[in-house]
Amino acid sequence: MNLHVAPPPTPPETTIVVPLRHPDHGSVVAAIRTAVLADLPAVNRLHHRSALASRTARYFSPRRELREIEWRRQVNARRGRTWVTSTSAAPDDVLGVVQLLRTEHEGEYDLGLMVDDSWQGLGLGTALTVMAIEEGRNRPDCRSITALTGTGNARMLSILRGLGARFHDQQGNTITATITGWRSA
């Protein structure tokens, strides 16, 4: 993996810089920053570029884009935090989105991740997930982080397994992963 893991969470206005090595683009710098409402068109372009299998792995349906009302909820700071990632060479092209959003269960946050198909397998998803988990660990109200993923989503299962997730509640082709251990439940 040609990647340095992102540092612990930073204030929303700060951009985290992560060096990457892409087989087609060479050495590039990925910039990770807090998402804003104005990012919706770029996030939807990411969805349009993504293969059906990638969108289905993320949403369990073949969605082509997010509606504004959905994106508003995802970028609402009272619910948690959403980040977008782009490269210095193409700052208007989102190549990854990660969310850590409060659920209806007290102390529980949900993790969501989507990475551009051409950037998968390079460690970016792991770096984004680690960053989101560190954010959760630093939130006083967060006692656990859950992620619902497909049983066939090998990359996400590997990321979560590597971070010590406990897998449970398998229903059909989906399974829930939970990460805890930094605070009493």
Rank of each mutant, 00 (worst) to 15 (best):
G172C: 07
H105V: 10
T176A: 00
I32M: 11
T129I: 02
G125C: 01
T87W: 07
R102M: 00
S184N: 13
D110C: 09
D116C: 08
L113Q: 05
E135D: 13
R137G: 03
R139W: 01
A31Q: 04
N173D: 10
P9I: 15
E108I: 15
N153I: 03
G172W: 07
T34A: 08
W83R: 04
F60A: 14
R183F: 04
R139G: 04
R21Q: 15
G164R: 10
L95E: 05
H22R: 04
H168E: 00
R63G: 02
N153H: 15
T56L: 15
T56K: 03
V130A: 01
M1I: 00
L95W: 11
H25P: 08
D141W: 06
N153Y: 14
G162C: 07
D116V: 12
P23N: 07
V17D: 10
E104A: 04
E104N: 02
T174S: 04
A31F: 01
G112I: 15
G123I: 05
T15C: 12
T34H: 04
I145W: 14
S27V: 11
A35N: 11
Q171N: 02
I175C: 15
V75L: 09
H25Y: 12
R73W: 02
I145F: 10
S118A: 03
A127I: 01
S118F: 09
P19H: 11
T146W: 12
P7L: 14
I133K: 13
R72D: 07
V97S: 06
A30P: 13
A35S: 13
R73K: 06
D117F: 14
E65T: 12
T129W: 05
G123R: 11
P23L: 15
T151D: 04
G96W: 01
D169G: 08
R21H: 13
A51D: 12
E13G: 06
L3W: 11
A35D: 01
A6C: 14
L100C: 08
P23I: 02
P7T: 06
T14A: 06
R63C: 03
W83A: 02
L124V: 00
V97H: 12
R102K: 11
R139I: 00
S50N: 05
A90M: 08
D141Y: 03
A127H: 05
A90L: 00
V17W: 10
T126L: 10
S118D: 13
V98P: 03
H22S: 05
D110G: 15
V17L: 11
D117V: 07
R166E: 07
R58D: 04
T85P: 08
G26P: 13
A53V: 07
V43I: 15
T87F: 03
D92Y: 13
V43Y: 05
D92C: 02
L40A: 04
G125M: 03
I179M: 10
I175Q: 00
G80C: 00
